[in-house]
């Protein structure tokens, strides 16, 4: 009887995944998350009555957007090209800044701790600030136009690209490096012959990946005056010219999907 009881407690008929203690902890987590959610929503003071006619508004917007104003393509195409140029040139500028910074920020190639800290700081701070915020700053510096956009794209990408390259540098095989050092090569030669060939595929892959993200980012630079299709899009939205807006949104959709496809194909080839 007692043996049977032990078996019963060890292998109860109804299987439960968690012990009562675990369940209690989980319940506390759920309550905590719910509390944060409810508090956030309440504190935001959302005007719920807006939702009452939201479906009408959206349907209205839909009918105004359709059909897209195809003839507007003549106006929209040049800024769209500018958007692509901003993304591409911005990514190229990124390369020249992120590449040396990555060598500073990688533990095994950095000359000393101060340089390492500086490298890390550059990577973290450029990555924390959004492209649009960088664009605000560069528009103030260079005035409205694509130059501000290129710098904004470049600065946001430095941290992203540099971080990934630095991680690749830290993960290299030390064998070739030691072999090159053993020949009496200088520091620069070791970097060029020992480290560089090992990280080059990652560098190209990361650049292409970031280029594809940058295409998407550069579509909104115009909202703060930093060039590209965003300028036209913003003015069409503000004029409530929804058929122009829907045309530009379709163009952006096509470009973003193509760039994602190209980027995936190139990365597939490289790595």
């Amino acid at each position: 009887m007692s043996a049977r009881g032990t078996v019963q407690t060890r292998y109860p008929e109804v299987w439960k995944k968690y012990t009562p203690g675990q369940s209690a902890v989980r319940a506390l987590w759920y309550i905590g998350i719910m509390f944060v959610a409810v508090w956030s929503v309440r504190h935001l003071d959302i005007p719920w009555f807006y939702f009452l006619d939201a479906h009408v508004q959206i349907m209205d917007l839909g009918t105004r957007m359709f059909p897209p104003l195809w003839s507007f393509i003549e106006v929209a195409l040049p800024p769209l090209m500018e958007t692509i140029h901003i993304a591409t040139l911005g990514t190229i500028v990124t390369f020249f800044i992120a590449f040396p910074t990555a060598f500073l920020a990688a533990r095994n190639t950095t000359p000393n701790t101060t340089a390492w800290l500086i490298g890390k700081f550059i990577l973290v701070s450029t990555r924390s600030i959004n492209t649009v915020v960088w664009a605000l700053l560069f528009v103030a510096i260079f005035g409205p136009g694509p130059v501000a956009g290129i710098w904004a794209i470049a600065f946001r990408s430095i941290g992203f690209v540099g971080k990934l390259i630095a991680e690749a540098i830290e993960e290299i095989d030390e064998g070739p490096v030691e072999a090159i050092e053993a020949t009496g090569a200088s520091r620069l030669q070791v970097l060029l012959m020992g480290v560089l060939p090992q990280v080059l595929p990652v560098v190209y892959g990361t650049m292409v990946y970031r280029w594809d993200i940058n295409i998407r980012e550069s579509t909104v630079l115009g909202f703060v005056g930093a060039g590209g299709i965003g300028i036209q899009l913003y003015s069409s939205i503000n004029q409530f010219a929804w058929s122009q807006v829907s045309l530009m949104l379709s163009l952006i959709l096509v470009v973003v999907i193509i760039s994602e496809f190209v980027s995936a194909a190139v990365r597939g080839k490289i790595t």
């Binding site: 935001l44 003071d45 959302i46 005007p47 807006y50 939201a54 508004q57 959206i58 917007l61 649009v132 998407r216 980012e217 579509t219 909104v220 909202f223 899009l233 913003y234 939205i237 409530f240 949104l249 952006i252 959709l253 973003v256 999907i257």
Partner: peptide
């Protein structure tokens, strides 16, 4: 996924007005 957050945001601003919603 395609459209940048800021584009989506401005569309919602036009539908629901300015503010955190």
């Amino acid at each position: 996924r395609t459209f940048h957050e800021v584009i989506v945001a401005i569309m919602f601003v036009k539908i629901f007005g300015f503010g955190p919603l």
